[in-house]
Design a protein around this nucleic acid. Structure first.
Lengths: 84, 84
DNA sequence: CGTGTAAGGAATTCTGACACG
DNA sequence: CGTGTAAGGAATTCTGACACG
C-alpha cells in the first residue's frame, strides 16, 4: 500500500527508528511523507519498508546523499532481484 | 492489510464518516480498533472497508445490533450482491 | 437508535536549536 | 554526518454528557 495513512508514532513502532531519525531521513530527501492539515506527517507501508532499508544502508556505511539516487528502486527487500 | 495503523482522523477521511459515527460503531461492537499507549484508536484498512459497509447497511435500514452477527463476513463491497 | 455538539484534559507531533564529533 | 534532547506551541484524540427523536 502506497497510501499515506500512518503518523510518525506508528512508523516509529513498525520500524524501530526514533522520530529524530525518521524526520532526518525526510529532511535528507529519502522519504516523502504527506502532511495532514495540522502538519503531521503521514507515511505509507512502502515508506516503512523504505525507512528500514535506509537505516540498514546507513549502518552499512552509506551516507544519506549516496542513498538519494537509487534506493527508491531498491526497496525490494523480499526477493533477491534488486533490478536497479 | 489487517495491521491497525491509522488514527481516527485518517479513517474519517478514507470513509467520509464522522468521528462520532466511527466511535459509535466501535461502541456497538462492530469494529475493534486497537489502542495506542495514549489511548488513541488504531484502525486497519480492513476496518476502513468494514466501516463503510456498516454505514451502507445502516442507510439500508439495518440496525447496529443486526449487523453484529454476520457483517464481518460480508464486507464484499465491490460486487453488487448485497446478499441480505 | 444513530448522530451532533460543547467541554476539558491528556497524548501526539511539529519546528528550530544546541550538542557531539 | 547522523542522532539525542529540552522547549513551547499547535493539532489530535479521548471520554462523558446533554440533545433530538
Amino acid at each position: 500500500m502506497s497510501l499515506k495513512v500512518m503518523s510518525i508514532g506508528t512508523v516509529k513502532e513498525l520500524t524501530g527508528l526514533t522520530e529524530r531519525q525518521i524526520r532526518y531521513y525526510e529532511d535528507r530527501q529519502l522519504v516523502f511523507p504527506e502532511r495532514s492539515n495540522g502538519g503531521a506527517r503521514k507515511f505509507s507501508f512502502e515508506d516503512v519498508e523504505l525507512l528500514k532499508e535506509i537505516h540498514r544502508k546507513l549502518k552499512d556505511g552509506f551516507h544519506t546523499f549516496e542513498l538519494r539516487k537509487g534506493l527508491s528502486k531498491t526497496y525490494d527487500r523480499r526477493g533477491g532481484s534488486a533490478r536497479h
